[in-house]
Design a protein around this nucleic acid. Structure first.
Length: 568
RNA sequence: CGGAGCAUGGCUCAGUUUGGCAGAGCACCUGGUUUGGGACCAGGGGGUCGCAGGUUCAAAUCCUGCUGCUCCGACCA
């Protein structure tokens, strides 16, 4: 393409209302514009990147035996009632009514639609396995859209769904997708980790997230420094190393603790370590109120806690629940607290002569001992792990880093097929529920994540696989020689199938260089009157900043070699 | 939903405290000079100051209500 003919409205200044790097650069480089909160228009440059990434995704999906379809974004709410997610998915589901007041929603994901399709079409085990995927615009009514396209309300996603006759088949489908995802993100040159993940509202048994490591990430990846254990912080576990202290059990004692409703205040009031404290937090879900106990130096992990129950959502209990149980917020404890299920973290059980709230304003108990002073209904891992803890698999040390979730694979099992009555006939002619898996990749989010990982102060440094153009031709000086050489290169490279952007604008050098840096093509070739008179072209690689001159007469061969090296 | 902030030409912002002709830079158009890291000179076009009320001789500016957007939190694939 010629820059003079392409609509690439670059911005000299940082846009207001954009804080994260990828958001700024996507606006500044002319990839996209905002229409509303969490809603973006993609311009030619952005669309090219989307196309590049989609092509990679499609290639790897097709190679893994998945087949492309296109499902509707507009879906009858009825279908969502059937799976139970009309309620369960909650307010994030974008809902609307048609003129007859019939209820619809805009799909945030497509388990229901695909299952509906397959239950009508797939009758026999002979039709299985099957894996269908699509690339679709999805909608989520985010509480707070932010960070540009990293968390938007409308976004492009690739989603695939596998259907197998049994768990073994699912295992195979799942592994195929997992491998395909690794190939996809490898090809994009991204630094990422596949981590164990929670299944959230999608549901299912087993799941991995693909996390691009970047500071702007909203998730936290926990990984081991010596083995390949990696998990989302929501799910990460650690080996319990603490042993019970070798102390005499002291007698339970009630003490005054004025203004000590937090662990920090209590530590200074009593001059004791947080490890001695037993933090007690009331939670409730639709069915019950539970008391969660963790050691004072830990936080309750609500995901782990809620996974102990069938009900999806669990949240901090409302104020009135404290009154009902005859306790006081900030001074809650398990001693003499009745009518509530008590769930203690593993580490709480190791506390000897600990401290906990006395269920009276400004009073705590000292020398509290689990089992002696209070009973526990369930011991479980309900704490959020901390950096430096011990790896559950190899005994190494756990580290943490922020990550952007760009893909997730789920083993759904029969959750949707049972809810939607999607069955096939097995070899014995017996109906069996389809065993499903689902696999998503955030297309637009991955692109933003790639920028988060590949940029400098001047602009984007595209990985070659995603770059809207591979070569940026930058003629300078304006003479006929320069003009002719630029045209010749442009034509030859185009004919060779190289994606070239020719900056044929009558702009000053600074403008051209700055736009080239911003747009971030991997290879920049400056055709300047000076070096051209020496028979040379100037090459600069955006990723490495490496500069070199090449022979102008033999340039095509050298450029092709450079491209080959860049792609690797 | 709680807290904070913003809304003035296409973009970035000043002007609001203390009411008195709507501004600057960039971008755009015309002419000229310039041409290797965001040029210069001269001229020009473009704004219902987010919307609706109110106060006032007079409102971008003060008051009330609303809307949109951003950030922090809650929440979230």
């Amino acid at each position: 393409m010629k820059l003079s003919q392409m609509y690439i409205p670059t911005l000299k200044e940082d846009p207001a209302n954009a804080d994260v790097v990828s958001h700024k650069l996507m606006l500044r480089s002319g990839m996209m514009r905002k229409l509303g909160s969490g809603i973006y228009t993609f311009l030619p440059l952005g669309q090219r990147v989307i196309n590049k990434f989609q092509a990679i995704v499609k290639e790897e999906m097709n190679n893994s035996g998945a087949q492309e379809v296109l499902l509707p974004a507009l879906q009858p709410a009825e279908l969502w009632s059937e799976s139970g997610r009309l309620e369960n998915y909650g307010p994030e589901l974008m809902r609307l009514n048609d003129r007859h007041e019939r209820e619809f929603c805009l799909g945030p994901t497509h388990e229901e639609v695909i299952t509906d399709l397959v239950r009508d079409e797939v009758r026999s085990y002979k039709d299985l396995p099957i894996n269908l995927y699509q690339i679709q615009t999805k909608y989520r009514d985010e509480i707070r859209p932010r960070f540009g396209v990293l968390r938007s309300r409308e976004f492009i996603m690739k989603d695939a769904y596998s259907f197998d006759i049994d768990e073994a088949g699912l295992e195979e489908s799942y592994n195929d997708m997992y491998d395909a995802y690794e190939r996809i993100f490898d090809r994009c040159g991204l630094e990422y980790r596949a981590v164990k993940a929670d299944t959230g509202t999608i549901g299912g048994d087993d799941s991995h997230e693909f996390m691009v490591l970047a500071d702007a990430g909203e998730d936290t990846v926990v990984y081991c420094d010596s083995c390949d254990y990696a998990a989302n912080l929501e799910l990460a576990t650690a080996k319990v190393e603490a042993e019970k202290a070798d102390e005499e059990l002291e007698e339970l004692e009630l003490v005054d603790t004025p203004n000590s409703s937090t662990i920090a205040e209590l530590m200074s009031e009593l001059d004791l370590a947080a490890e001695k404290m037993i933090k007690a937090v009331l939670y409730e879900n639709d069915e019950q109120v539970v008391l969660a106990l963790v050691r004072g130096d830990y936080e309750v992990n609500e995901i782990k806690l809620s996974n102990l129950f069938d009900v999806v959502n669990i949240e901090l209990a409302a104020e009135d629940k404290y009154e009902e149980l005859d306790t006081v917020k900030g001074y809650t404890g398990p001693v003499n607290l009745d009518d509530v299920e008590v769930i203690a973290d593993e580490l709480v059980m190791k506390v000897v002569n600990g401290v906990t709230g006395a269920n009276q304003r400004e009073k705590h108990y000292l020398n509290v001992n689990p089992g002696r002073d209070f009973e526990v209904d369930q011991v479980a891992d309900i704490r959020t792990v901390k950096e430096g803890e011990t790896c559950p698999e190899c005994g190494g040390t756990l580290e943490q880093t922020p990550g952007i979730e760009v893909g997730q694979v789920f083993k759904l099992g029969t959750k949707y097929s049972e809810a939607l009555d999607a069955t096939f006939l097995d070899e014995n002619g017996k109906p069996q529920p389809l065993v499903m898996g689902c696999y998503g990749i955030g297309i637009t989010r991955t692109i933003a994540a790639a920028i988060e990982q590949n940029h400098d102060d001047y602009g984007i440094k595209w990985p070659t696989a995603l770059a809207p153009f591979t070569v940026h031709l930058l003629p300078l000086g304006g003479g006929d020689d320069v003009e002719n050489k630029a045209q010749e290169l442009y034509q030859t490279l185009n004919e060779a199938g190289v994606e070239v952007l020719l900056d044929d604008r009558n702009e000053r050098a600074g403008v051209k260089f700055n736009d080239a840096d911003l747009i971030g093509s991997p290879i920049r070739i400056t055709i300047g009157s000076r070096s051209l008179s020496d028979g040379e072209l100037e090459v600069k690689l955006r990723q490495s900043d490496e500069e070199m001159n090449i022979d102008a007469d033999n340039s095509i061969a050298e450029i092709k070699e450079l491209i080959a090296n860049e792609i690797k």
